[in-house]
Design a protein around this nucleic acid. Structure first.
Lengths: 103, 103
DNA sequence: TCAATATATGTCAAAACTGACATATATTCA
DNA sequence: TGAATATATGTCAGTTTTGACATATATTGA
């Protein structure tokens, strides 16, 4: 990034290549994890309230019991994509998904 | 899935291994794509309103110009995870992300 | 116009994610 | 209790997603 651009960015509140950037990345990562955990918790609640076992739910989404367990455990090696696909499979509306994001 | 379980599921509105399941998968996939495209569009708007080039934005998120272009083009080979991370990098709040989901 | 800048598209090796499997642990309920 | 059922954890090969690069096309502005 050109120096000029960096100055322009920093003038509007961005900090690049500094301690601030490190803090910024921490914030992003924390928020990202929060978001995933929230989807994860909601997915588990939905499945349970439908009285589905992990095994049966896994079949519905063409996955496996162990992966469902990992999704619900908030395993870092599970994508948001898979969580969202799973929620949609349980007929969760976009509005409901939106409501699942952290405050 | 045991026959019994399948019957139980179907009684509560689920259809497995049928034309209905195919339609159900289509619905899910359509909604999934809709959701991604919505995030994609909003990301582009945000970047542009901040007067950032794809190249500069790419540096901010430690990625590349071509990947940013793909994100904004709604390329199927771009994960929700990357889209969300990118939005968070632009200091988008969870509430704002929620507002970006389709009605 | 036309050169500089910005964006789009295709490709690829490396990294991340996946379903499946084995197996450990926990929960249910007769 | 203890056997059946449900969930958790670890591993791995196959698949998908990634940043990076090259390069094509589009937009800007002097």
């Amino acid at each position: 990034m050109k120096k000029e651009k960096q100055i322009k960015l920093e003038a509007s509140g961005w900090k690049i290549g500094s301690v601030d950037e490190f803090l910024e990345l921490s914030r992003e990562e924390a928020e990202f994890i929060e978001l995933k955990l929230s989807l994860s918790r909601n997915l588990k609640e939905r499945r349970q309230s439908l009285r589905l076992t992990q095994k049966d739910f896994a079949r519905m989404i063409h996955s496996s019991q162990s992966r469902v367990a990992k999704m619900e455990a908030g395993d870092p090696a599970v994508s948001i994509d898979l969580l969202v696909r799973s929620l949609l499979a349980l007929k969760t509306s976009h509005k409901e998904v939106a409501g699942m994001l952290p405050v």
